[in-house]
Amino acid sequence: MDYGAMDIDQVGPRVIIRESFPNRADFVLEHVDLAFANSLRRTMLAEVPTMAIDLVEVDENTSVLADEFIAHRLGLIPLNSKQIEDVLYTRDCDCDQYCENCSITLTMHAKCTGDEIMKVYARDLVVAEPRPNEWVGNPVITDEAGLGPVICKLRKGQAVRMKCIAKKGIAKEHAKWAPTSAIGFEYDPNNKLRHLDYWYEVDPIKEWPVDDRNASWESEGGPQQDDETFDYNAVPSRFFFDLESIGNLEPDAVVQQGIKVMQQKLAAVLQELAGDENRNGNAGGDGFGVQEPDGMQGGDYGVDQGYTTPYVNPGATSQWGGGATPYGATPYGQSGWNQ
């Protein structure tokens, strides 16, 4: 295969960042092949770990919504996942069910006492201390009023009281752990490689508009000329990414984490291959910092099914007094959940 041409000035991948925003990164990846770019895309979409609520203990729910309905909504709330390396996977943790090393507890406690319909927002989730680091588990709130997404609405006299356990996970298991809402991915916008065969009524050029920004970025430029000969050996080597983060990780962190996850996958393969050669199966601590899930299986997962266990926990004296919520100083007083 002819890779000589591209190796003249530089070896290895090259990145050009075209735009960067708090929740978006638009970059061009060059000097890599299609498989590499696509693997990076797939990893960033599905295998970057984040935090999300995974267990909900319902103490009280007199709202019009069913327990599991609210539990589902809670699961989808983005939680800050900065430096998530500090959090263990629950399945890798030594604890019985969950603990502060592998989970973050958020409590939601709200009652409507006025005549108006009251909305419960993500900001009303109170994060319990201690936790692995100062950011992880905070609900992501980006609106100007600082409310976050609505969880439910309450009428006079209705109340919700729930204990939510947030865990670390990946989007392959459930989409609530996804770090990105979407990743735009394009190569060869002018279709010079003819990977696409457009369906059209009259004129494919009119009916399939190109992305001008990506198309003009290609140095070859311009649409296919009729007299141009088709280079059937050409391979794509420039990829346009447009990554939109949900807010739990910064866009650059999503890319970096994606790279790391890919390296860990490869390291796991290398370790296995090297281990086999020594004929002792598991060579163990050789060079690679493989964070692969160890033998742990099954067991812990049974617990996850209990989304809506109406399990009252009198021992849990969460710091309910902490005035983080506007409802903190209401009927339930300061001293934990009224028992």
Binding site: P13, V15, F27, D252, K260, Q263, L266
Partner: peptide
């Protein structure tokens, strides 16, 4: 296969460095 894995790990490291620099 081992060689391919090593090459990819090193390519990914380059990419990570490049991305940090550019960002």
């Amino acid at each position: 296969l081992q060689q391919a894995c090593r090459e990819l790990v090193s390519d990914l490291s380059t990419l990570s460095r490049e991305f940090t620099k550019e960002w």
